[in-house]
Structures are given as structure tokens and as C-alpha cells.
Amino acid sequence: MNIFRFLGDMSHILSFVILLLKITQGKSAAGISLRTQELYMIVFCSRYLDLFWNFSSLYNSFLKVVFIACSSAIVYIIRFKSPQKDTWNPELDNFPIQYLIGPCAVAGLLINQDWTPFEMIWAFSIYLEAVAILPQLFLLQKQGEVENLTSHYVAALGAYRGLYLMNWVYRYFTEDDYLQRIVWFAGTVQTGLYIDFFYHYYQSKRGGLSRPVKLP
């Protein structure tokens, strides 16, 4: 464990806290893409299948359960719970996620670590996580303006993988036999998708004014 990975995990947890607060306290999922939340649920449920046989640390196993539980709860609330379910707009949040899941599944089959079924599933979850934010970014693009809490949610989510990139650089230089090109490539793509958002987020938050984040 290093400070970058720890901060990355904290940023990821923060993104869950912000989103859960927003949809439970704010009683509204307006501006949140259910499609993206469904993709994250698939990502965590597939990646953490090894919860039952890979025990790395209590920290690791605990967060795996937390991430599966939170992502599932978020999908449940937005999909089934009133009044949140009435604030979800299927016309706006209509990104064809099958065009994300399909190619990621093929990529997971073709490019993975050890050609075992679980490694294929693991690689699938890594590729899917890299593109899972797309429906959310498309929704924000359509709306033009981003609600304050939602902007912090997306920023925390982008920061988490950005911090993981730093963690991988740190591990590359401090561990002599460490090479993880699959997750490095996917993590770079994932963080890259946020660059545009980060630019507008920074512009809107600069100088302490909390002007709304505007996406062109």
C-alpha cells in the first residue's frame, strides 16, 4: 500500500458517499446516469468474484464488499425507489451500454493476464470500468450545466483513477518485478476521459466561487 493508492481508494469512497447523500437526501437522481451506475455494478460484481478465494487483506476484502453493496444500492434506489425513480429520465440517459459491454467482453477474452476464466472476467471488468463513465459524461453534456454535488461526484471519481495511475508509477519504480500493462492502459484511458471535465470543473471552482460547471 502507498499513499497514492490509499488516497485513490479514499477518493473512490468519497464519490460513493457524495452520490448516496445526493440521491437519498436530495431525493433526486436528476443529472445522474443510471446507465453508468449499472455499469459500475457490473464492474464490481465481476471483478470482486475473487472475494471468496483471494484474501489479500481485511482492508481489501472490506472495500470489495462496500463497493459491491454501494453500487448495487445506488442502482436499486434510482431504478425502484420512489421518489428517485421518477426523477430518472430514460430519454436523456439513453447511452447504448451494450456497445460498451460487448467490446469489453471480447477484449477481456482476448487480452488478459493468465487465460483463466477469472482473469478473463477480471480484464473485462477493468476495460468496462475505463468506459463506464461515458453515459454519465454524455448526460452532463446534454444538460450543459452540472449540478454542484454531481460535479464533485464526477471529480472524485476521476481523481480516484488518476491517483491509481500515480500508484502504478510509484510501484513500477519501487518494486523490481512489477508490470501491469493491462490495468495501466485501461487506467490511462479512464483518466483521459475526465480531462475535459476536469478542465471545466477547475474553471468553475477557481477562486473559490462555486459557479456551476458548464460543459459546452
Binding site: D9, S56, Y164
Partner: peptide, 10 residues
């Protein structure tokens, strides 16, 4: 170095 996946990352 060769690719290996440490199972310690989330």
C-alpha cells in the same frame, strides 16, 4: 520484468 497481476489492488 514480466506481466503479473498482484491481487492486492481493488
Amino acid at each position: 520484468r514480466h506481466d503479473r497481476r498482484p491481487h492486492d489492488e481493488l
